[in-house]
Amino acid sequence: MQTTKSHPKSLFPVSTHYCAGCGHGIAHRLIAEALDELGVQDRTIGVAPVGCAVLMYNYIDVDTIEAAHGRAPATATGLKRVRPDCIVFTYQGDGDLAAIGTAEIIHAANRGEHFTTIFLNNAIYGMTGGQMAPTTLVDQKTETTPYGRKPSNEGFPIKACEMLATLDAPYYIERVSVATPAKIRRAKKAIFKAFNYQVEERGFTFVEVISTCPTNWGMSPPDAMKWSVEHMEKVFPLGVFRDKGAEKDRTETGADK
């Protein structure tokens, strides 16, 4: 008998502080597996966000810097420029990346900085208790929009992938989900590809992970996963928004794969 997959080496075998059924745990594991498979754990530096994943360094076994709220891309820019041999990634939530850190991520992407951003989107502010986030869906009820988000008052959800895909510099942009085992497999491939492009020094890579917040959505974890498929994926369609690597391969080989 053989284990098909043992605990990733880059992930501490500890219990996380995340609520039961939170997608952060799945995303952490996918990152750890990607780092293990690339064999870059000892030269990886993570940049932790402000939000639920603020204690990321307790779970992912790599050197980690804690950035000011939303400034993870700015910190990562400095790190990567000083230590270009290191693999640098930022791990940010929707409050961190799409609200307070919008300027940082857009300009880091526009400069084509050679780091990877993993953006966890669960359409709500998790750590502070379920307030409206920029990615909250229209009519979604939160603590600060108790009658549902109204576009006339609070605007529409921000689509980070589409926004960054209007820039020329980003090398790879994909949106994935962790709602079902099949989608997790696809998410793993996307995260691996993003880190692999960074190892090959190709450019800025960005993976948005559609996740859940069962506690603040007021649902059981399986219901939250279903809700994210039924509602979130309509507003945030999954898919590849930019993959210059695949385009390059196509032009080099002269064949459509």
Partner: peptide, 13 residues
């Protein structure tokens, strides 16, 4: 094993 957020499950086959 894939969906467990706390990496509690190991599969043997």
């Amino acid at each position: 094993m894939l969906i467990c957020p706390d990496v509690c499950i190991e599969l043997y086959k």
